[in-house]
Write a protein that binds this DNA or RNA. Structure first.
Lengths: 244, 244
DNA sequence: GCGTCGATGTCGGGA
DNA sequence: TCCCGACGTCGACGC
């Protein structure tokens, strides 16, 4: 048996193989030609030529790959009768296992890609929160920002505002508003209303898109909803920028 | 410009490339060597040799790939000054775009894997729910199934039963019972109890494994817990099968 | 280390 | 088709 050599890059193997995963569930793939990718971080993934970028089966790091070359006429044969070329055993962290029985290797390459310089993202929830913090007026006339990430014992409230009458307003910001977010805001508002320094505190659920069920639950909990137009908000920012 | 040829399989390209995604967010990858996979379903994914099975950037089908070979000294050059070898443009469904500027193709292979015979899974929540629906007796003597996926304005209740006295019982099924599931069941039971046609409705939290915190919360909410033995339940099914 | 929460989540089922 | 919740969710971040 030989252990996986230290990869200096990514390895791509094309092989007829049969795959068995056992871990959080069990899954089986019958013998067929597939693409197997082994990354430098140890990850092993088995791809068909569909299912978008997702593999049929995989093992996430940390995991170890060991390869055995079974002697002919050993148990574990190709259903067609031919002996297996290799048997790969990938062991994951909680005793998860991925077994890849390879009947025939059709191609095998390794490429050294070096360290990737990394990915830059824009337009995620953090950005939405920042835009709302800079434009509290979208919540109503006279609304002012008190603070972002207001700390409570059960977690940070995304935005704390005061409305035109000076009353506190807790805002939960989401890109997509779903029921979980309403639960979260409910807990915050309930807790903050126990503080006589803050009470009465109202709650606003702000998101680019609010699902109907979440809106129903929010109304039932006495919370307001605000659907945010991200592009318009960014436009307001630009408009303000031009004023100065 | 040439459009992507009809792939008969999966294509793997190793190339120095720069990537820009614009769609649900915007993201940028500076020039570096990477692995690009193009599947027969149209999916394009750009991998580094880490991040487990997930690509740095991708486009899910349906999408179209078109490739241009820019003339030397055209705009869009390699920062190093060398001309680009190819420019790939992947268009997704809501105007999403993925641009891959390729400075140098280091390797390029295509493999015909054929249609994959597919994946067999076992042990997921849907299966557990089905088994419980077929064996309402595990909840208690005289329990009968009313319906699966009983609709409420805030979401579907996994199972609606009637107990031996004719009272309604709402069941939330989970593979792993955690606090979220208890919250979910609480909302359903509370809502259903406002309906005089249903009230009084009791709640049962059923899971293969119920975390202690979830059990405590369930008790506090007046909900029952049922720890389900998946294998035994499957065995009951088999036993019943053998009777007929 | 564990719990919480976001995600270009992706995927599958029911209306 | 859309809507909605599960997922082998995976990862990032905070305590």
């Amino acid at each position: 048996m030989r252990h996986a050599a230290n990869l200096t890059g990514v390895r791509v193997v094309i092989a007829r193989c049969e795959v068995d995963y056992a871990g959080r569930l069990t899954a089986h793939l019958p013998m067929a030609p597939r693409l197997i990718m082994v990354k430098k971080d140890g990850a092993v993934s088995v791809h068909a030529d569909d299912r978008a970028y997702k593999p049929l089966n995989w093992m996430s790091p940390p995991c170890t790959l060991s390869v055995t070359a079974p002697a002919p006429s050993q148990p574990g044969e190709d259903p067609a009768g031919a002996p297996l070329e290799e048997l790969w055993l990938v062991k994951g962290r909680d005793g998860e296992t991925l077994k890849i029985a390879i009947a025939e290797i059709l191609d095998d390459h390794e490429y050294d890609l070096g360290v990737d310089p990394g990915l830059e993202k824009d337009g995620v929830e953090a950005h939405l929160q920042a835009l709302l913090a800079e434009n509290p007026g979208v919540f109503g006339t006279g609304y002012r920002l008190v603070t972002r990430e207001y700390r409570t014992p059960i977690g940070p409230v995304d935005l704390l505002l005061r409305d035109g009458d000076g009353g506190y307003v807790a805002v939960e910001v989401k890109r997509r508003g779903e029921i979980d977010g309403v639960e979260q805001l409910t807990r915050y508002v309930e807790l903050m209303n126990r503080d006589p320094q803050l009470s009465p505190v109202s709650g606003v659920f702000a998101a680019q898109l609010i699902k109907p069920q979440a809106a129903v639950l929010a109304r039932d909990r006495g919370l307001s909803c605000l659907t945010v137009d991200y592009d318009a908000l960014r436009g307001m920012d630009n408009a303000e920028d031009r004023l100065f």
